[in-house]
Design a protein around this nucleic acid. Structure first.
Lengths: 118, 118
DNA sequence: ATAATATGAAACCATATGGTTTCAAGTTTG
DNA sequence: CAAACTTGAAACCATATGGTTTCATATTAT
């Protein structure tokens, strides 16, 4: 029941190895040994990275016989996207404005406070 | 001329204090002492965080008399945005498809490889 | 049953990180 | 000029992080 995540998404993606792991697991579901063959470090090191990703909710494991298969779980990336959204007004342009319009659930949510407000 | 950044964007935003700094400096340009008054740590600690942000290109400083004013420099966040873009196909939906259409420089760049390809 | 495979846990290590306090140096201000 | 202010650099410290090797356990294959 304690869903307090020890590692958050920001921390999880800070490491380049973990970003590569996410890419690798995006399309395929893979067991640890197969995964670790793509990295220049020990299997246990990869395993620890996988745990960090799992703690951040970015990856889920499924036990199949003696192997543990990992796969991407993209939902937590939404937090990143939301965080980024705040700053998108700073590289404001027409496409961006259109996106804001498209994405806004509520038209009142659109803040035309950018540098070149129209 | 050596523009090899010691800290990258992913690392820079991994720390919550630094994320708060970016928010603070998004709208205002502020000198170090004023900035540090918003944080429960020493001025020097804040100063070091500012340096990490500066090394990642997320913040720029400007010397005005005896004080150094910092302000946001959002461009490097684009790298984050681009990184995230890869994963957006995973929470594919109609709005997302529209965004892909809007954003694509080249129509051939649209990969309808999502779960529910239309 | 025994051997081989797949994995995680543990102990350990070097370096990075986030914080502190102290100090030196460049601006104002009186 | 002297005092006060603003800042960064340096030395230091505790803990986190990313890696290693070794060991125990569960599953599959012979």
């Amino acid at each position: 029941m304690n869903s307090a995540p020890k590692h958050d998404v920001f921390q999880a993606i800070a490491d380049p190895t973990r970003r590569k792991l996410l890419r690798l697991l995006a399309d395929q579901e893979m067991p640890v040994t197969a995964i670790s063959s793509h990295f220049p470090m020990s299997r246990t090191a990869v395993s620890k990275h996988l745990r960090v990703l799992a703690e951040a909710g970015l990856v889920k494991d499924k036990k199949i016989g003696r192997e543990t298969r990992y796969h991407l779980q993209p939902e937590p990336l939404r937090e990143l996207k939301d965080w980024l959204a705040y700053y998108e007004r700073f590289w404001d342009n027409k496409l961006n404005l259109l996106k804001l319009l498209v994405e806004a659930d509520d038209l009142d949510n659109i803040k035309p406070t950018g540098p070149k407000s129209l």
